[in-house]
Simulated scan of single mutants.
Amino acid sequence: MDPDRRRLGSTTSVRRQEIAMARVGFVGLGDMGSRMVPHLLESGHQVVVYDIRRDRIDPMTALGAVTADSPAAVARDTDVVISAVMSDDIPAAHWGEDGILAGMRPGSVLVVLSTTTPDMLRMIASHIPAGALVADAPLVGGVRYAAEARLTMLLGGSDEAVALTEPILAAFGDIERVGSLGSGVAYKLITNVAVMAAEAGLREALDLADTLDCSYDITLDLLARGPMADVVRRAKDRGNPRAIRDSALDFDVLLSAGGEDNLPISSAGRVRLWAAVEAASTPPVFFDLTTHTTALPEYRSR
């Protein structure tokens, strides 16, 4: 074995052991993050958290997490920083004097869980301080999976970043190594093409049921007997909520990466999901795709 490679492997192994019970930062305590932080605490990690909403922070500190006053402060005080913000919030959470990148130190690792684009990951990497590392690990699975530590993480990054990140992410479920930095978000976008087309397709099937004066209950029962069974079951699962707005935003990210001309089905699906978001008087969740709350305007009163 090449002696330099042997030394690198040995150094990484030691560093992995050091970081196994590390101080972990977590930025973004929304529907997913708020259910993931408890697993870190249960695993014995010291956890430092930040969110722009105080009401999201208090439940985490009640469990034993420590509060920071900015994303930069989280990074300055931790070995591994997990960023779980929505795609629109990535710039504010990562750049500027209060952003995560301002607080990163040599030897620390940033793990981006957000559904974003490979270009955004490369931009983050280009601004990472010397000696710090970055990996991407977007999530497969919803709120129920996060609560039960059954998520799948699509992990991309250098060998060193991946090796140091895996012991932390293992608290959340299964890890699938998918390649170099940006590969995680690339594969997440690819899977989202099919998943979100199914979400929009479910709503459009019920739009046709309205047009033809047919029953939602019968329509959903018939769909549940075929290849749409998992989609219908997920939609009707009130214990596994998913904001439709989040899916619509994911469509925006998907189309920014792939181009509307190249993804006509996704382009049409985005229009229908944003219409569903705007239809409801309160923020709709996935379940609402199966009700008249998100129907076309002329059928919402049914």
Rank of each mutant, 00 (worst) to 15 (best):
M1N: 14
S13D: 13
R15V: 04
R16K: 10
E18M: 14
I19E: 03
R23K: 15
G25N: 06
V27P: 01
G28F: 11
L29W: 14
D31S: 14
R35L: 08
R35N: 11
M36V: 07
E42H: 14
R53P: 07
D58M: 09
P59L: 11
A62E: 15
A68I: 05
A72F: 13
A75N: 05
A75D: 03
R76G: 12
V80E: 02
S83H: 04
V85N: 02
S87R: 07
D88P: 12
I90E: 02
I90T: 06
P91G: 10
P91C: 10
P91A: 13
P91K: 09
P91Q: 11
M104C: 06
R105E: 12
G107H: 11
L113C: 08
T117V: 11
D119F: 10
I128V: 15
G131I: 06
L133G: 09
A135I: 08
A135L: 09
G142E: 06
G142Q: 12
V143H: 14
R144K: 15
A146S: 13
A147R: 09
A147E: 05
A147K: 09
A149D: 12
T152R: 04
T152A: 15
T152Q: 07
L154H: 05
L154K: 02
L155W: 02
L155S: 03
G156W: 00
G157S: 11
D174K: 15
D174G: 12
L181T: 07
G184A: 13
V185M: 02
A186K: 08
A186D: 05
T191A: 13
A198P: 02
G201I: 07
C214K: 06
D217V: 08
T219M: 15
T219K: 08
G226V: 05
G226F: 01
R233W: 06
R238L: 09
G239H: 14
R245P: 00
S247W: 00
F251Y: 15
D252F: 11
V253D: 04
L263N: 13
I265G: 03
R270M: 11
R270T: 01
L273E: 01
W274A: 06
A276W: 04
A276P: 06
A276R: 04
A279D: 12
A280E: 07
S281M: 10
F286R: 11
F287N: 08
D288R: 10
D288K: 10
T291K: 14
T291F: 14
L296A: 04
R300Y: 00
S301L: 10
R302C: 12
